[in-house]
Simulated scan of single mutants.
Amino acid sequence: MHRIIDHINGALARPGVRAALFLLFLLQGCTEEKQPVVTLGAQASVQNALVWVAKEQGIFAQEGVEVKIKPYPSGKRALEGMLRGEVELAVMAETPLAIAAPAHPRLRIFATLGKSDNNICVLARRDRGVVRPEDLRGKRIATQRGSAVHFFLSSFLLQAGLRRDQVELRFLEVEELAEAFARGEVDAISMRDPVLERAEQMAGDGRSIRLCSPGLYTKTYNLVGWREFSGRHPEAMERILRALSRAALMVREEPRAALAVMEKRLQIVPERLQQIWSNVNFRLTLNQALLLSLREELRWAVSAGLLGPGVLEPGRLPDFLAMVETAPLQKVLPEAVGLIGVEEKNP
């Protein structure tokens, strides 16, 4: 045994052997892909909790990827930021994505991070005589144009038996909605928390009423980027999805720790936070329901005049299945992918 060790020590003492081993060490290091710093746009909201939990709890870092999050007032604005080149990935509802799809066929959906069917409400001025949906007739209602809250409002009015021309619709930026409501410039707003809570507080006790319709509309939260991103950085994409999957597990198994992250970031009343939290299903998926929603909401956008002239050929919708990049999620969480036609798309 001592003789073997002596032979090894003797070999290591030779300059040529030491140089060869050093070169081998360097080459091994060079084979490891240097992970990029990924910029991700996201709204600071309960619905986007997976992104913030993965960041604040160090899960992205544990998976070996550096993610810098750029906050936006809404998912629509995060998409607009990505289109301007401010971020590489963004989290958004399916509505602005459907509207952007015809003009931007290189957009890709990498995962749905969660969904909720009771996330958006109409907040109305009780002191203006609104106590039920039908009372919105002739009222001034504000929302963010071409977004999930706009689509919900259209569905809500239809459910209440009201046509578009029977209300006065106004479009404002997200940051303007609570103030406009509190000042009485509009009679109602279609929005989600924390904007709704801020508007209620600014308007004063007893002056507003929430009109909600659970189950009317299911909003999804989707991780979206350019087609080229996953092609250039396949390993980074998989690490991001793995981190988000771990964050989803943490939300389910350690909800208090996850809630603490969002309570600190949003500074929202704990009772309200818990209520919003209970309405969101945090789970990574890519399923057929997403494609159906994208098609339905693009048809609505066309009928509402939200697309510019010539953007979409009459009677022809984009191939939304082609916009779903299933390969990264299939590697990380294969059971999460359930799309008809995926076998043909990704042989």
Score class of each variant (00 low, 15 high):
residue 72 Y to C: 03
residue 204 G to R: 04
residue 293 S to C: 07
residue 208 S to W: 03
residue 201 Q to A: 15
residue 100 A to E: 07
residue 74 S to T: 08
residue 4 I to Q: 14
residue 18 R to C: 06
residue 174 V to S: 12
residue 280 V to N: 08
residue 235 E to H: 09
residue 179 E to C: 11
residue 302 V to P: 06
residue 87 V to P: 09
residue 155 S to Y: 07
residue 87 V to E: 10
residue 253 E to W: 07
residue 266 L to Y: 04
residue 193 D to V: 07
residue 125 R to I: 05
residue 148 A to N: 10
residue 249 L to Q: 15
residue 159 Q to S: 12
residue 72 Y to L: 09
residue 166 Q to M: 07
residue 34 K to R: 15
residue 55 K to M: 13
residue 283 R to F: 03
residue 89 L to Q: 07
residue 72 Y to H: 10
residue 18 R to N: 02
residue 162 L to I: 01
residue 245 S to M: 13
residue 213 S to G: 08
residue 87 V to G: 08
residue 39 T to K: 11
residue 87 V to I: 09
residue 162 L to D: 00
residue 45 S to Y: 11
residue 195 V to I: 14
residue 331 K to Y: 07
residue 29 G to N: 06
residue 125 R to V: 06
residue 185 E to A: 12
residue 217 Y to P: 02
residue 83 L to P: 11
residue 45 S to T: 13
residue 191 M to W: 14
residue 9 N to H: 15
residue 239 R to H: 01
residue 256 R to I: 13
residue 120 I to V: 08
residue 222 N to C: 05
residue 189 I to N: 02
residue 245 S to W: 13
residue 252 R to K: 11
residue 205 D to V: 12
residue 261 V to C: 02
residue 158 L to H: 04
residue 208 S to N: 15
residue 235 E to N: 10
residue 215 G to D: 03
residue 20 A to G: 09
residue 342 V to F: 00
residue 188 A to I: 05
residue 122 V to P: 02
residue 322 A to T: 06
residue 176 E to R: 14
residue 309 P to Y: 02
residue 112 T to V: 14
residue 55 K to P: 09
residue 260 A to K: 03
residue 214 P to L: 00
residue 232 R to N: 11
residue 45 S to I: 12
residue 175 E to C: 14
residue 128 R to F: 12
residue 161 G to R: 00
residue 154 S to I: 11
residue 4 I to W: 13
residue 44 A to M: 14
residue 314 P to C: 01
residue 243 A to K: 00
residue 106 R to P: 12
residue 76 K to A: 14
residue 224 V to Q: 07
residue 282 F to S: 04
residue 9 N to M: 13
residue 91 V to L: 02
residue 214 P to T: 01
residue 84 R to M: 11
residue 311 V to Q: 13
residue 174 V to N: 15
residue 36 P to R: 07
residue 196 L to W: 00
residue 245 S to N: 14
residue 110 F to K: 06
residue 195 V to M: 13
residue 140 R to P: 11
residue 131 V to C: 14
residue 148 A to I: 02
residue 75 G to T: 06
residue 244 L to I: 05
residue 288 Q to P: 03
residue 196 L to N: 06
residue 42 A to I: 01
residue 220 T to D: 03
residue 144 Q to L: 14
residue 333 L to S: 06
residue 209 I to F: 00
residue 291 L to H: 05
